[in-house]
């Protein structure tokens, strides 16, 4: 457990001290003791805070885009050194996707990969913690690790065991890529992937269309459009988003070209219909690109099961076109390619 921490810290420290990377993206312990907090280390000392344990839920790949979006100050020379990043198995696919889509070149990212047995769902762990009446203040020294079917939390020299299935993220239960697909350095032993199945979709698949519609209507109507699902997504990197435009006043003299350039696909008003529009747009934009890291589902403040959408999409894409994004660095994009023999289903 702490050996993994040390390994990560040592790698990051060395990279920063030698000036091989401009900064390093990783997790530190959050203030509540349970969770981890994404951060950027710019000096070797900051790298000493890094942790790698089952609380590292964050997908650091989404922070790569900051670098592209930053506007240089006048006269500032761009730093061409690579960015150091810590990734788990699922995150490494997101990095690979960014390389596939030429957002970054392979040399621009220094990837420190870690094999992962799953990460904990912090709210669930907190609940279990409170239920057992464990001291809250003890979390300052909390250390988490996974051993077989148990999540072990050690604090103050004591140990507390939780069943892995109870406190682990839903997404980790069906994870097929626990080992990084690309990396420069690797931490940990290879982990056995979970079987290729979609048990999480079965319930929804059994529903009738009307039931599904009722389900999604209720879910979408609670959306507050905080856009966390979009912002956290490692595949969303546009400078200007098609669903978030300031409302341009169209007058009688607005030309069609102007209207086209500023087409408004989704209103800012979070009514059920507009939310539906937003989520469908988001889902469609992720088609064949989503790497199934499940972050959108985690960040949603009102608990919309967005992963039901992305998982279904993943299933469709794999069944129909046998395509999976972010497995290597070869340029590849489902919707920008075609095959003469693609299936014809559904055309009149």
């Amino acid at each position: 457990m702490s050996a993994k921490n040390d390994q990560l810290r040592k790698i990051a420290r060395t990279l920063l001290a030698e000036g091989k990377v401009k900064y390093f993206l990783g997790n530190v312990r959050g203030a509540d003791g349970f969770s981890s907090k994404p951060t950027t280390a710019r000096t070797p000392e900051e790298a000493n805070e890094f942790v790698w344990d089952p609380s590292c839920v964050n997908n650091m790949a989404s922070y790569l885009h900051e670098d592209k979006k930053r506007v240089l100050k006048r006269g500032e020379e761009p730093d061409t050194r690579p960015i150091g990043i810590f990734v788990k198995g699922c995150d490494s696919r997101s990095v690979a996707l960014n390389i596939q889509e030429h957002i970054f070149e392979r040399e621009q990212i220094y990837i420190v990969g870690a094999t992962c047995e799953g990460v904990v769902d912090v709210p669930k762990l907190k609940k279990a913690w409170m239920k057992r009446g464990l001291p809250v203040a003890a979390t300052n020294t909390l250390q988490l690790s996974i051993n077989g079917d148990e999540v072990i939390a050690s604090f103050d020299g004591k140990q507390e065991k939780f069943a892995k299935d109870d406190v682990i993220m839903q997404r980790c239960k069906v994870c097929r890529y626990p080992n990084p697909v690309i990396y420069d350095e690797l931490i940990g032993e290879q982990v056995e992937p979970k079987p290729d199945a979609y048990p999480d979709l079965e319930e929804m698949e059994a529903m009738s269309p009307a039931e599904r519609w009722a389900f999604w209507t209720e879910q979408f109507s609670t959306c507050v459009r905080c856009l966390a699902c979009r912002n956290v997504c490692p595949a969303c990197y546009c400078r200007e988003c098609s669903v978030q435009r300031s409302n341009p006043a169209f007058g009688p003299r607005t030309t069609p070209t102007e209207k086209m350039a500023k087409a408004q696909f989704s209103n800012k008003t979070p009514t059920m219909e507009d939310n539906f529009n937003f989520h469908m747009s988001r889902m469609y934009h992720m088609t064949g690109r989503c790497t199934n890291c499940g972050e959108c589902n985690r960040v949603c403040p009102v608990g919309i099961p967005l992963r039901l959408l992305t998982r279904k999409m993943d299933k469709d894409v794999r069944e129909t076109y046998d395509h999976e994004s972010g497995l290597d660095t070869e340029p590849k994009n489902l919707l920008a390619e075609y095959d003469d023999d693609d299936p014809e289903g559904g055309f009149l």
Binding site: R212, L335, D340
Partner: peptide, 19 residues
């Protein structure tokens, strides 16, 4: 060919949310 890929998947997504 691009249209074909897009729309087939898009239609499945619409069905998934109950349209």
């Amino acid at each position: 060919y691009f249209t074909r890929r897009r729309l087939i998947l898009f239609k499945k997504q619409l069905e998934w949310v109950g349209i």
